[in-house]
């Protein structure tokens, strides 16, 4: 969306993007599983942040502890060679409301 930030170092580019939880029920088990499935397809480290708390996007339980309710503002952080593609893939799931609603 608006604040794509890129700080590229020689080895590991870092990408971050703000997203909003758009589906009505928020990040419950099914959306969490979709996010994990998408995230594990990338080699880079991916974190999801809410109110300063960061969790690993490759862990279902981690994502559930975020309690990402409808309307919550989150930030995706990715570090690694395929960081940009990973952020795009995860942000896409948020925008598609995890295929719900």
């Amino acid at each position: 969306m608006d604040s794509d930030k890129k700080t590229t170092t020689a080895s590991a580019p870092a990408v971050a993007r703000d997203v909003t939880v758009l589906n009505r029920y928020g990040i419950h088990a099914r959306p969490a599983a979709l996010l994990v499935k998408a995230a594990t397809g990338f080699a880079c480290e991916i974190l999801l942040e809410k109110n300063g708390v960061k969790v690993n996007a490759k862990s279902i339980m981690g994502l559930l502890t975020l309690e990402g309710n409808h309307g919550a503002k989150l930030k995706i952080h990715a570090t690694g060679p395929d960081a940009a593609a990973a952020v795009a893939a995860l942000a896409d799931l948020f925008e598609r409301k995890f295929f719900e609603d």
Binding site: S59, I60, M61, L64, T65, E67
Partner: peptide, 10 residues
């Protein structure tokens, strides 16, 4: 544990 997921594992 974080209270909401306390009793569960994946």
């Amino acid at each position: 544990a974080v209270p909401i997921t306390r009793e569960h594992m994946e």
